[in-house]
Design a protein around this nucleic acid. Structure first.
Lengths: 338, 338
DNA sequence: CTGAAAGCGCTTACAG
DNA sequence: CTGAAAGCGCTTACAG
């Protein structure tokens, strides 16, 4: 805001009696510069609260050192809502990891139906890569990013026949753990309330559910299976359908904590006690799980770690081209709902 | 990523047979250029999927066209949680408004105890201004921003003796509406569960609470008043204290939906029915209010409008220096909890 | 209406 | 270890 007189490395150079080159190198800690010179320059820079201009630096370096967090609000909402809590809980770890690595975080609230959205971020040099975290249309977005050879990383099971960075969790095991826990609690009519049927996460959790049932000598009943879209609203709807199709169900394995919360609302309204009449297990271990009443038994995926890996591995890819696909473990967190 | 051969305005100039100046002006829709020339240049640019390099543009223009969303996660958490839902719900409107105005949104996850944080955003030319939305230490941050003459806008009651942009809601009326509603429902022992006692929002809502009680000929009982920090945890704690201090209370006016949700957890656990035994009114009308069971009666502040105004008025200030302080109305949303 | 040229503030290959 | 100079890709005052 025009207050400072020392605004460029040229000013620092003048004050220190060296060249701009030397100032630039000193502030970037180049090994070419002697320690004494560096010290002198740093002292002057600090004294005047000097900060390097990033637009100039980025132009010269030909990189933005900025990552876009590509998201879009859940359908039917003007903006973000409780249904995007997953995204929020990841945000802290992503932003702090990026800032440790000296990258900025841009929020790209994309139009889910426009396949050209990456252009205005990438071709403008605004960002160096994308963290893709959309709850729906994931395959579509991955397709467009792959096609334009954009650097990106995704939360979720990698699609076959494509090569790109991803972080995902052991969904098969998560599904199995949830189901085994319910079986151990003596439940025999365990409903599966999945995410979208065509997403890898859902498929794998379903496979884990089936495996656990089979091991226990139980059959899989189609009337006990329904798919939603991760939201609490879909949890309510599916719960109603499940209760109609299978009034005798005694447990629900919901594929998200939000769906579990929605399901529990319906159960309460219908006079079914949780966990006495119907036990409920969620997925994600979002902060809402603790606050829920009763507190939700759920599958935890260590979101701080997920956020850190998303940031770290994307930057590694941007800087070195190394493609990383990591799978993190899933844990059962037992609370009161099951 | 090195795929494109047409990357600069010089390339477009070559292809079109005009100068770089003309290309630059045409793409920026300068009135100096004839429509035909513009058309020709735009066609070539579109054909080659050309996008202007923003680092160069920003350096030349001496502005970043980027706004920082300055936030910090709630204490005691590694990252963001349900307690930051307010922030999330504002994010959609802020980011879409900014993008309409051709500004980018940067997430600045600041260290709440470091008063120097704005420097690395402002003095580096990273951003042109800040949207300040921290649930705590607001006064502290405002002080540092004012001192360094940083352009910013705040959600909340403006502090006296300072001049800066703000968006806030009619908290007095909100407090009054909530309390009047409870009085109308026949409640006589209405507890006030405030946000931090030293924040303007809390003070004004308390004043509205007192005004409504006085009008109804009721006294204000100190044992019915407690202050928290907006979080669901503090809602649980305060509810316990209130029940101990005033076992006969029949209503609670919580200053946030999160506190209301926490309070309801405690009420459920103690066997008090909502709303039959204790009526509960929240504040904010976050998406959790609808999902709560029973759905929460609350005070709505039209968050999409808040987000839009925060973005719009900050940019107006950045571009013209006009200081805006707006107050938006508060509405009562009646659901089932009161 | 269009163009040549300077300038925005950095970085770095090249020369010493 | 240090400096002069070119270059990153735009914008725009100035000249025509």
């Amino acid at each position: 805001m025009g207050l400072k007189t020392v605004k460029t490395i040229a000013d620092i150079a003048r004050l220190t009696g060296v060249s701009k080159s030397t100032v630039s190198r000193a502030l970037n800690d180049s090994p070419l510069i002697s320690e004494e010179t560096k010290e002198r320059i740093r002292a002057v820079a600090k004294e005047h609260n000097f900060q390097i201009n990033v637009s100039a630096s980025r132009l010269s370096l030909q990189q933005s050192r900025t990552i876009a967090f590509a998201v879009h609000a859940q359908k039917n909402c003007g903006g973000f809502s409780l249904n995007d809590l997953f995204l929020l809980e990841l945000l802290g770890a992503i932003s702090s990891t990026l800032s440790t690595l000296h990258y900025d975080l841009l929020v790209a609230n994309i139009n889910p139906h426009d396949p050209a959205w990456p252009h205005e971020y990438l071709d403008t040099g605004r960002v160096d890569g994308f963290i893709l975290l959309t709850s729906t249309r994931k395959k579509f977005h991955i397709g467009t990013l792959v096609k334009m050879k954009a650097p990106f990383i995704v939360w979720g099971t990698p699609l076959p026949n494509y090569s790109y960075c991803s972080v995902n969790s052991d969904n098969f095991n998560g599904g199995r753990l949830a189901t085994e826990h319910l079986l151990q609690k003596g439940r025999r009519r365990i409903a599966f309330m999945g995410g979208p049927a065509d997403e890898g996460e859902t498929e794998q959790r379903y496979a884990g559910y089936v495996a656990a049932l089979k091991e226990a000598g139980q059959e899989v009943a189609p009337t006990l299976v329904r798919y939603g879209d991760w939201t609490s609203d879909s949890g309510m709807e599916r719960m109603q359908q499940l209760l109609e199709a299978s009034p005798d169900l005694d447990a629900v394995f919901a594929n998200s904590d939000l769906m579990a919360a929605g399901a529990m609302n319906v159960l309460h309204a219908r006079g079914r006690r949780v966990p006495q009449d119907v036990a409920v297990v969620g997925y994600d271990d979002l902060s809402i799980a603790r606050v829920n009443s009763p507190p939700l038994t759920t599958i935890s995926q260590n979101l701080p770690l997920v956020g850190k890996l998303l940031a770290q591995n994307l930057i590694q890819y941007v800087e070195t081209g190394v493609v990383t696909n990591v799978t993190i473990p899933a844990h059962l967190i037992v609370r009161e709902s099951a």
